[in-house]
Design a protein around this nucleic acid. Structure first.
Length: 245
DNA sequence: TACCAGGGTGTGC
DNA sequence: GCACACCATGGT
């Protein structure tokens, strides 16, 4: 997918948008923001308890996005043992160093880098983006994605096959694979189980504190079903802001 | 300053 | 299968 700059503005109940480049603007907006999503159906499925209910009330406007596959893959490979703030900084470092520079309305933007640029980058340049031990893995993964034409192929794979292929890449385990599956390939039944999700599963839903990833994945699927990913998104925001009081 | 961060890998059992 | 050390680096 082509990289874009998106300008959004809320006016009452309406969102105004503008993208650069302008070509296929509506197609992009529709896809990226998942405009066709049936929220009533989602709510019908996930509002099963007081925890989800109060999270939805607190953050009613949270939406899942459908992000570019390669951008999601590289971004989430940066995430392990990093804070959200650090991840943002490092993604920005990458964009500033390797991304296309665009000046629009007097503002300077840097697009997220093309995968071939990451694959061809020197390890030293990647390390200068503060990627640390992830730098080599990201460079290698970028190369493999291109060689195997994974971006195209994965759209024809099942969820399981997609996860298997992603986890063949060094630096992608269960959680990162699930992030890519949810945020880019829109498998809405997935909740990527990170530290915060573990905490709310244990503290709210009484799962044993040493449950395996697979155990949690199964529990999530049984309990929330096809739209678990949405429930996870609301709960995640809630516990991060308000903790477990 | 010491501790934690939207985990993954390798090793040892 | 599970436990554990280690991994770079920034933020607080």
């Amino acid at each position: 997918m082509q990289k874009r700059i998106v300008k959004l503005k809320q006016e009452g109940d309406y969102i105004l948008w503008q993208t650069y480049p302008k070509k296929d603007e509506w197609d992009f907006i529709k896809r990226y923001f998942r405009v066709d999503t049936d929220y009533e159906d989602i709510m019908k499925n996930i509002l099963k308890d007081e925890f989800v209910k109060k999270s939805v009330i607190k953050f009613p406007d949270i939406r899942l996005l459908k992000q570019d596959f390669e951008e999601a893959l590289i971004s989430y490979m940066i995430s392990p043992t990093n804070s959200v703030k650090s991840i943002r900084t490092r993604v920005r470092n990458l964009s500033r160093k390797f991304g296309e520079k665009v000046i629009l309305d007097g503002h300077t933007f840097f697009m997220f880098p093309k995968t071939e640029v990451i694959a061809d980058a020197s390890l030293n340049d990647l390390l200068n983006c503060s990627l640390g031990f992830r730098a080599g893995r990201i460079k290698t993964a970028a190369g493999i994605v291109l060689e195997n034409n994974l971006t195209k192929k994965i759209t024809n794979y099942s969820e399981e096959k997609s996860r298997d292929e992603l986890m063949k890449l060094s630096g992608i385990g269960d959680k990162v694979a699930d992030c890519i599956l949810l945020y880019s390939l829109a498998y809405d039944k997935i909740i990527p189980v990170d530290r915060w999700v573990q905490r709310f599963l244990i503290n709210y839903y009484n799962l044993p504190s040493k449950s395996s990833y697979e155990t949690m994945r199964k529990w999530i699927r049984d309990y929330w079903g096809d739209y678990a990913g949405w429930a996870g998104q609301y709960l995640f925001e809630y516990v991060r802001l308000y903790g477990f009081n």
